[in-house]
């Protein structure tokens, strides 16, 4: 029997402290997640210094629970993987320093992982990747179409020019009086309402693969404020449904457009907003019709938010390519994927 590979993976880029043990890059032995949502709810969004303080409270508890749940010892491990960016610098630093210390203490190689690569590899827990593939990566901080010719090769084909989709959800959530994080509740409200407001679909007809959500956000806020001024009460479910219809229309149509130019074997949906049922259902409906030869791989619902398991899956690929970091590894809050050469931006 071939020796199994075990990676201890850390994630602390925003408001979740997570440590996971992953076998052979695609099997979760443990995935401990400590979320700070209840804390940041007080402030209507993530406060970086508060997040950093929570991470340091949680990090060793998460390591202990992850090791115990996975029933492994440090001697069983092959490597330690960690998110080193992008994200909040103070938050990243806790995970990076904890991971480096564990790697040093137990003489294990250290694997620095890009958080966004991690999100894509959350889909690896569904099935093996087949290349080339396209990933629609939608979260609170990012909205990107990422083309992958092989493991570990990320080329951004399109991205948001202003707000990320998840950011727009949080902002209109505030207007609707939905507590942070608003995505899940708005998704539920949207399913009870109808698209009666017909908000704009920004850049939907433009011949590029970029997104824009700030116009939609403004249209939404103006509609609500105007109604307030004339004393009219708007149906909140219809507002949510109209907002979500615009977001899903834009994300879907841009994705279909990109697939025409880039024929791929798989389309991956990943990132926090990939948990949105409206978006998942729409892609499941249209992709088989328009691109019957492209397999839709939806990141598992439980792995759409930030978690250590996805970092372990991405880290495993880097382990195979011997992409290791060393004791000098630092957090890189604005870490990026490389742009694809010769693509209009």
């Amino acid at each position: 029997m071939e020796k199994q590979n075990l990676i201890l993976a850390f994630e602390s880029s925003c408001d979740e402290t997570s440590v996971a043990v992953i076998r052979d890059g695609h099997e979760i032995l443990s995935n401990v997640i400590a979320t700070q949502i209840n804390s940041h709810k007080r402030f209507g969004g993530v406060v970086p210094e508060v997040a950093s303080r929570h991470h340091i409270e949680q990090v060793t508890i998460c390591i202990e629970d992850a090791m115990t749940e996975a029933a492994v010892t440090y001697d069983d491990l092959d490597a330690v993987a960690v998110t080193y960016g992008p994200g909040l610098v103070g938050a990243l630093l806790v995970g990076v320093n904890a991971a480096k210390t564990v790697a040093y203490a137990h003489h294990l190689p250290l694997i620095p992982v890009n958080h966004m690569a991690g999100h894509i590899y959350a889909a690896r827990f569904v099935k093996p990747f087949e290349f080339p593939l396209m990933a629609l990566l939608v979260s609170g901080g990012h909205t990107e179409l990422v083309y992958m010719q092989a493991d570990g090769q990320f080329e951004i084909i399109g991205e948001t020019r202003d707000d990320a989709a998840g950011e727009a959800y949080d902002k209109i959530g505030r207007v609707l009086g939905v507590p942070y994080p608003a995505g899940k509740v708005i998704d539920e409200m949207a399913h009870k309402g109808n698209d009666t407001f017909k908000f704009p679909r920004a850049m939907i007809d433009e011949d590029n693969y970029d997104f824009s959500f700030s116009g939609l956000k403004s249209a939404f806020i103006n509609t609500v404020h105007h109604a307030d001024q004339i004393g009219e009460t708007l149906d909140k479910n219809d507002l949510a449904a109209s907002f979500q219809a615009s977001v899903v229309d834009v994300l879907t149509s841009k994705t279909l457009r990109v697939l025409k130019q880039y024929p791929v074997k798989q389309l991956i949906l990943a990132g926090g907003v990939a948990a949105n049922h409206g978006l998942r259902e729409r892609l499941q409906e249209v992709l088989p019709k328009e691109f019957p030869n492209t397999d839709l791989v939806l990141a598992p619902l439980k792995l759409c938010g930030d978690n250590g398991a996805m970092i372990g899956a991405a880290g495993y690929v880097q382990y195979q390519h011997q992409q290791f970091g060393d004791a000098t590894l630092n957090a890189d809050p604005s870490l990026e994927f490389d742009w694809m050469p010769n693509m209009p931006h």
Partner: peptide, 19 residues
Amino acid sequence: SYTGLRIGVTTAKTLAFTL
């Protein structure tokens, strides 16, 4: 410095915990 403290304390705490 909050960040400085967290770097030292995370490293010391993790080292003590893991060993």
